[in-house]
């Protein structure tokens, strides 16, 4: 069983693959050995208000039970309480923040009531550090990734929240881990021939999860990441399944 905590529906305008239907995404993931996925909708990254795309996400996930919706919300919009309320009513377990695409900083004071409200609603927070490699992305995009230092300050400010940070690089995970126990990280951007050895001892395995960034990134290739490592089969199960189950209460 492999659970992907970083997958998407919707159209990624800077890539080469067509927008998949939910059924197609499930097929691609299944063909790659991925049984379940926490999915966000890319339409909510780019739209001025995210809920239209999130509603499409809810509908799609109701049809495909292996997809768990993680709506993308924008806490800087005046309707953030309504966004959260609608997400909670849809039965989601977590919401995703994309601060660099929604044009706010994690130090914004507006996040204080937002984070309190997620806690009150029993919602987990997933934070996207990046959605693509800034070194070679399309020239029209000038969005910087969320800096590790900014994420560190955010984690320190909200110590009662355990945040899942997706698409951190290996160095960023290792940099943040000693000072901040209240985050988990997916492995979508963490890659090195010996990355298991580099993480072992620095980050508790209970804080690592599998993420693919599919369909923008090849799910089959990402799924191979855990296989050829020094992680034991039990550790792979923990990273590939159990930690995600616990975080998303799947």
């Amino acid at each position: 069983m492999l659970i992907d905590v970083n997958a998407y529906l919707g159209w990624w305008p800077f890539g080469l693959v067509a927008e998949p239907t939910a059924r197609q995404l499930v097929r691609v993931l299944a063909a790659s050995g991925i049984d379940r996925a926490a999915v966000s909708h890319l339409g909510a990254v780019f739209a001025p208000e995210p809920m239209t795309a999130n509603r499409r996400l809810f509908t799609a996930c109701r049809r495909e039970r292996s997809l768990a919706p993680v709506p993308i919300v924008n806490p800087l919009l005046a309707d953030w309480r309504e966004q959260l309320a609608e997400c909670a009513a849809a039965g989601v377990r977590a919401v995703r923040l994309v601060p660099n695409y929604h044009n706010y900083r994690l130090k914004s004071r507006r996040l204080d009531p937002f984070m309190a409200a997620t806690e009150a609603a029993g919602l987990r927070v997933v934070l996207s550090a990046r959605l693509e490699d800034e070194r070679h992305r399309y020239f029209a995009l000038r969005i910087k990734p969320v800096a590790a230092a900014e994420i560190g300050a955010f984690l320190a400010r909200f110590p009662r929240h355990h945040v899942l940070c997706t698409a951190l690089t290996l160095n960023e995970v290792v940099e943040l881990a000693p000072a901040h126990a209240n985050f988990s990280a997916d492995l979508s951007y963490a890659e090195h021939m010996a990355f298991a050895d580099q993480l072992r001892g620095k980050v508790a395995l209970a804080r690592l999860m599998f993420g693919s960034l599919a369909p923008m990134i090849s799910a089959r290739a990402q799924a191979a990441k855990l296989a050829a490592t020094s992680f034991t089969p039990a550790e792979r199960r923990q990273i590939g399944e159990r930690n995600a189950r616990a975080f998303f209460r799947l």
Binding site: S32, H192, S218, A221, A224, A228
Partner: peptide, 17 residues
């Protein structure tokens, strides 16, 4: 590009194309 990248991931990228 190992060791910066995983050899297995690189192979599956081709096999999955």
């Amino acid at each position: 590009d190992l060791p910066f990248r995983s050899a297995g991931v690189a192979i599956e990228r081709i096999k999955g194309a």
